[in-house]
Structure formats: C-alpha cells, structure tokens
Amino acid sequence: MRFGLFIPQGWRHSLTDVPPEQHWETMLSLLHYADNAAAGEPIPGGPWAWDSVWVYDHFHTTPVPSTEATHEAWTLMAAFAAASQRVKLGQMCTCMSYRNPAYLAKVAATVDAISGGRAQMGIGAGWYEHEWRAYGYGFPRAGERIRALDEGVQIMTQMWRTGSSGRFDGETYQVDGALCYPQPLQQLPVGDGGAEVPSIPLWIAGGGEKKTLRIAARFAQYTNFAGDPETFSHKSRVLEQHCADVGTDFGAITRSADYNVVIGENQAEVDDRFAWIESHFRKHTPGERGEQEIANWRTGPLVGTPEQIVEALTDFRSRGMTYAITYFPNAAGDRDQIELFQRQVIPALQD
C-alpha cells in the first residue's frame, strides 16, 4: 500500500489559526517534511515513505464559504514542484470545468517539467455549486458536467501523448491544433504492446456508476472513490465490469481513497483529538453544517489507535484499495498524529 498526505491549504479551515503571511511557510514546511520522509532521510521516528502530497481544487472554504483563505491548487502545484525533489504532486481533485482542458494540459505538462516528472492529474466533474456560480461558471446539470469531464480527459490525453490536440469537436469543448510542448517527462504504457508515450497519470475521481466509472475504465491509471468497505467493494465490481466492456485491464488501475485520520496512542489521546476538532469547527463553522462536519470526522473508518487503523486499512487492502490519501486535523500546527501514523501504521502496510 502507498500513502499520500494532504497539505493544509485552507479549504477545510485548515489555516485559520495561521497568520496570512505565514501560510506559505506553513505549507512549505510540511511539504519538505513529507519530501524528506519519502527519501528515508533521518527525521524523527525513522525512514517512512510518503509517496505523494495533495491539495484540493477549490476556491471557497467548506462546509460553508467564508473569508478565510483557500489557496489555488495549480499555483501550489508549480510552487511545490520547484520546492521539492521526490514526492509526487496531486490534486484531489481538479474540477474539469474550472479550466479549459487544452490550457490545463499545458499547465500540467509545465508542472511535470519543473518537478522532473512528478505531476499527477486528479480530475473530476465538480460539485461545489456555490463556487461554480460565484465564479461565473453557472452550474450545469450533472450529465453536462460529466460530459465535460469525458471530453476534457480525451483532449488532455491526446495533447500529452502526441503534442497536439488535433481537431476535436465536442458538445462542450472544441479545439483545433492546440500544441503541448514540452510534452510531459513521464512515460506511460499504452495498448496491448505496452509501448510508452509521454503522459501524466490520470486519477479519475468519483463513483458515478454509469458514466464516471466508465470514463475511468477507458482512461484512468488511478481511481478515487469514497465509501464504507462494502461500498468500495461494490464500486470496484462496477469498475471491473466497465473495464471488461471497453477492453481495458482492470488490474492495471490502482484504486485509491481519501481518509480523514484521527489517531492516538490510546482512547484518551483520540478523545483529545476530537475535543480539538469539535472546538475548531464550532468556532469556524457554527450551526448545523459544522455539526455535520464533526459527525463526519467521528464516523470515518480511520479513527482510533494505530492497531485499529491498521486493521481497517488491512480490510480495505483486501478489497483492492492500495493507495490511501490521508488528511490530518490541525496538520498546520501539530504533526504528532502524522508522526504516529508514520511510525506505527505505514510500516505495517507498505508493500
């Protein structure tokens, strides 16, 4: 199993206790920490392996919009690329309709060049209606957003592999000879022969069974869908059937999931973590939405002692989940939970 780490960028009120002039320093410090961990350098606790770092592609805070900072994802990708050496760099997930796909392909290829071949493309149809309307995108019905995802993925894939979009006349996007040079540094196998072409790994995010998972079956190297263990297994079976239908290798797609992590050496420590979560969200998102956010933390599968979390992840791994992207509360101010997870959870699950 491989592991990714979300860097606090503000979207989930993760920088509210940090002065604005210290936001970048805070993000950079955690990026360097994860980058050193990936190298096995001597940081407290030993040589752990964070495979990747992640941010969210959102403009306004959640669960309610506020004036608290939310730093933009692809700007951070470029900055992270220049400021790190080893970890992969992802977004969970880029909203297809927030940027023209030809432009986005060019941005991602540039990040790949800066990073030396570490860019990842987490991509989805988008859902945060307030952002869409506030930024002037409207809010198309779900079918239209998913069609934009499908067409956009086709355009980006073509541009990375060949250097040009060619002519594409879709219902949502039309491009004609958009060039993408430099092409990505990364090489990915295509077709039955396994020939490698320039490309950036696609993480298709979402569990829509009729369309999103079919797009994933056609184009993804990774999927990302949430749910309890039974739901994860069900979505996996749906994806497998789509792969059979379109003639792709289900086994070649890495299935991932995102998790809130609340970890303590014992129940008393776990309770202390929840006391902070409750205080934080009641302060910054009071009312029903804040209480729902607290409930989401309490009911997550990765809550408890290291032994309990290893047991939960072992069950997910038996269902085919081999990549966990983790989000820790108060990561901007306290790395104790991250370090405990590194010391006692990651080594028990690494391949």
Rank of each mutant, 00 (worst) to 15 (best):
N296V: 06
A275W: 03
Q120V: 14
N224I: 05
L30T: 12
V310R: 07
G208N: 08
V107P: 00
G193A: 14
A348W: 03
E21N: 12
A252T: 03
N330P: 04
M27G: 02
P44G: 09
P229F: 02
L213F: 11
P189M: 10
G166H: 07
N330F: 07
G207I: 12
P301H: 09
Q267L: 10
I7Q: 03
P8K: 01
Y173G: 00
E278A: 13
A148N: 00
M96I: 15
T322I: 08
Q350G: 11
R141H: 14
G194D: 07
G191Q: 07
D176P: 07
Q350F: 14
P19M: 11
Q85Y: 00
R319Q: 12
D192H: 08
P20K: 09
W11T: 14
V270I: 11
T67M: 06
L340T: 12
P329E: 11
W127A: 02
Q241N: 12
R141F: 01
K211A: 10
I200P: 04
G40I: 14
D57Y: 05
A348R: 15
A125D: 02
I114Q: 05
G170N: 05
S236M: 06
V107G: 00
A142Y: 09
P20E: 14
A195I: 13
F225I: 02
W203P: 00
R298N: 03
M92C: 13
R99K: 13
R343G: 08
T110V: 10
E269C: 04
A105C: 08
M156W: 02
M1A: 15
G191A: 09
D334V: 12
I277G: 09
R298P: 07
A142R: 13
E307G: 14
G10P: 06
G166W: 08
L340V: 13
E265H: 12
T172H: 05
A217R: 02
L239A: 04
R145N: 10
D315K: 15
R237L: 14
Q350Y: 13
E240K: 15
S318R: 15
E240V: 01
A220C: 10
W48N: 11
T254F: 00
G152Y: 05
G45L: 08
Q85M: 03
P229Y: 01
M159I: 11
A37R: 14
M1E: 05
D150Q: 13
R282V: 03
T285L: 03
G251H: 11
G4M: 04
A205Y: 01
E293G: 10
I346R: 06
